[in-house]
Amino acid sequence: MNAAGRSAPIEVSYFPGCSLATTAKENNQSLIESCARLGIRLIEIPDWNCCGSSSAHSISHRLAFDLACRNLALAPAGRPLITACPSCTLRLKHAQHLLRHDPEARRRYESLWGRPYDPDLHVRHFFGLLVEIDWRSRIGNGEIAALDLTFAPYYGCMLNRPAPLRPSSDHHGIMERVLGDLGMRSVLWASSTQCCGTFLTVARPDIVTPKVNAILQNAADSGAECVVTACAMCHMNLEVRCTLKAPIPIFHFSELIALAFGSARRDWFSRHLIDPRPLLRRKGLAE
């Protein structure tokens, strides 16, 4: 702790990814705001490119590897690389796994990016950082609004990894812990780790709509007033493909942290397709 009673600031490299840079700007801004309050400085990787999304690895493993690697090569040494999207995280980690185990992959990396890969670069999702820091002590002296909301924590597929990439401890329960600290109550429900349908939303909405409706109905039936997502893609699919008459609203995890910290911006919530403002007003959390 320094003289002001705050822990030393943490500087990390930041990979927002395409969803947060565009369709889910509110996710990006709220994450940056929340981190600022926690004394975490997110330094965006200059000129980062798309990780390849689901499409690159779906049809070309080499393209998926190269696209992920350019980002790894752009990350400066000595700082962890924080990601916000579970899917980008997996893409970057998969490329690192190949670099570690396959000399041919390392040769390709060096010939394309003109430097050896950094074996010490620690790629991790924002949640990984959150479990490690004593986040309560980092909030400082500012007010925290108690969020009187009952929520269904929705992880989608983010906790699933192929065996070689599984972390020693996963992040299950992190949303419940952190939002619980902020006054929220979580429900136990069956769809917490159900896949949202990802890219099938475009070509096969007939498959995704019933899935999404079942997830949101399940959340409401469990007594939740809202769903909280860990992934911007899940957030979009739930909002876009839901055809229920009166679905409960869906928040990005980071929006609620920023809301409790008093740094939420009104235009985040107006961007939602399922308007969360009536609920927030009812709870005295918005004008």
Binding site: C18, A21, T22, D47, N49, C50, G52, S53, S54, S55, A56, S58, I59, S60, L63, L67, F199, L200, V202, A203, R204
Partner: peptide
């Protein structure tokens, strides 16, 4: 589904992002 993947890659090739 394949057509969708191809459009995503087309976009990445063109802009570096989707």
């Amino acid at each position: 589904i394949l057509a969708f993947h191809r459009e995503v890659l087309h976009s990445i090739a063109r802009y570096g992002r989707t």
